[in-house]
């Protein structure tokens, strides 16, 4: 077997103008340029996108699911960040 395995890339596609790029999957490629071409062939065979990002999987830093609770806890008790926190009389327009 050939051991020359190519690095793993994560692929993000913008479905149409006005939308964010969304993660669609991953693939192997020898370099950035080939990753982009392979992503086009693999993930946009039916006009699924107008723009593609590829990034080496090793370059991504992710939050750890084990510390999910403490990591996201700081936003838990800040209800005043939401508009519904504030009592406004119903007859005040446009608010």
């Amino acid at each position: 077997m050939s051991g020359s395995s190519w690095p793993l890339y994560e692929v993000f596609v913008r479905g149409k103008r006005g939308l964010n790029h969304v993660h669609v999957g991953s693939l192997h490629a020898p370099d950035d340029e080939m990753a982009l071409r392979n992503a086009r062939d693999l993930y946009t065979r039916r006009n699924e996108g107008v723009s593609i990002w590829v990034v080496r999987a090793s370059a991504i830093t992710a939050s750890s699911p084990d510390e999910k609770d403490p990591f996201f806890a700081p936003s838990g008790d800040k209800v005043y960040r939401h508009p519904t926190f504030y009592d406004i009389p119903e007859d005040v327009p446009h608010l």
Partner: peptide, 28 residues
């Protein structure tokens, strides 16, 4: 187009297996 799709489907699935720690060369 159909045979090309099959290749694509295989690759989506290999990618899914790799998220579980499988190695592509090993699978092949």
């Amino acid at each position: 187009a159909k045979v090309q799709d099959e290749a694509g489907h295989g690759l989506y699935l290999y990618a899914a297996a790799e998220t579980l720690g499988a190695d592509r060369d090993d699978l092949t």
